[in-house]
Structure formats: structure tokens, C-alpha cells
Amino acid sequence: MASPLEQFEISPIVPIQIGGIDLSFTNSSLWMTIAVIVAGGTLTVAAGRGAMVPGRLQTIGELLYEFIAGLIKETIGSEGRKYFPIIFTVFVFVLTGNLLGMIPYSFTFTSHIIVTFAMAIVIFLAVTVLGFVRHGTHFFSFFVPPGTPLVMYPLMIPIEILSYLSRPISLAVRLFANMMAGHILLKVIAGFVAAMGVFGILPLALVVALTGLEIIIAFLQAYVFTILTCLYINDAIKLH
């Protein structure tokens, strides 16, 4: 039987080599492209007519819009409006990647640490730059929680810096680990179905239930990734 890890293997579809670096169009790239086509196409059609009384698809687009707008308003406030497009894109991209991964024989690009880490490090760097642009060197005060006694500075500052630096890692690992763990679990339990013969009905029922759970997690992790992005932006804008 195939290893439960086989589903995460990257295989090139169109080999591309530029300057000795492998930039092949792989199964991961294919599903990223599919995600863009599905998400972009759906939302373009949803926004398309802009009817006064929305249809089903348009309602989904508007709900998504108002959901993210509400999220930004709650976490960042009115200053967050200008970050709306990028935050909306992050949510839609991650959500679509997670959900497409639930299709059998598809590939879950969000289950790869390099993908989630690339997103997390870009967000981290952008937020840090934003903090310095907004507050200059005053941004360093972010590493000293208000009300800290002077004697605690040598302890608090390294802890705060470490906690700040671990943000991209935790952001990346949380999404990657959740997606990977869910898919491995599904694969392992699905393996029992065939192995247990008639009693395979039990793991089958479990797989059905877990599939539902995984779809919830697909939404939840996209939401968590997005809300943490919002919180980091909020920290950079308002410090404490």
C-alpha cells in the first residue's frame, strides 16, 4: 500500500530550468493555478452583474466581502481599510487551497511548509517594515511591554524579541501542520477500510466524519491565518 506521505510528493509536470535553478511547473503549481482560476473565476462571476437583488453566487461573494471587511474592522479598525485587498486575497487563496485539497487525488499546496512559510515570512517582513515606517525607531518600544520595571528589561526584551521572531514560524507551521496532519489521518484510516474487510465499515464511517471535520478545519485555518495577519498589522500600526 502507498505510504500516507505519498500524497505530498512534488512531481514536475513541465520541467523548467532557469540559471540552474529548478522552477518546474509541478503538481503543486498546477493546483495553485487551479485555485486561482476557481477562486478568481467564481468571485469574478459573483461580482459580475452587481445586481440590486443578489443571486446565490453574488450573495456568496458579498458575504465573503463583508466577512473579511468585518474581520478587519474588528481587529485593525478603520485604518485597516487599505490592507483589505491583500488580506482578502490571503484568505481566499489559503481557503481555496485548503478546500481543493479535500478533493480526492488533488494536491494540497497549503500542506507544504515552504509555501506557508513563504507567505508567513512575507507577511512578517511587510508588517515589520510597516511598523518602522509608521513609528521609526520608536517601533523598538514594542519589545518592552508597558509597565515593565527597569530591572526586568534584560529578561523581557530578549523574550519579546524571540516571541516576535517566532511569529512567522508559528504562522507557517500552524497551517502546514494542520493540513498535513488531517490528510495523513484521512489516508491512514482510509487504509484500514480495505484491510478490515467487512468491519471496514467502521473506519469508513470515521473517514466520512473526519472529511467533514477537515472541511471545517480548512475554513478554520484559513480564518486563523487571516486573523493573525490582521493582528500583526494592528500591532505594527498601534504598537501596544
Partner: peptide, 20 residues
């Protein structure tokens, strides 16, 4: 495969971002 994944992530994300 990391460079390939990152570059395609950037390309697809940028396309989606511009469209949205």
C-alpha cells in the same frame, strides 16, 4: 522543489491579488 514552489506561489498569488 522549494524555488519552484515559491516562484509559482508568488506568480499565482500575484495574479489572484491583481484580479481581486
Amino acid at each position: 522543489t522549494f524555488p519552484s514552489q515559491v516562484i509559482w506561489l508568488l506568480i499565482t498569488f500575484a495574479v489572484l491579488y491583481l484580479l481581486l
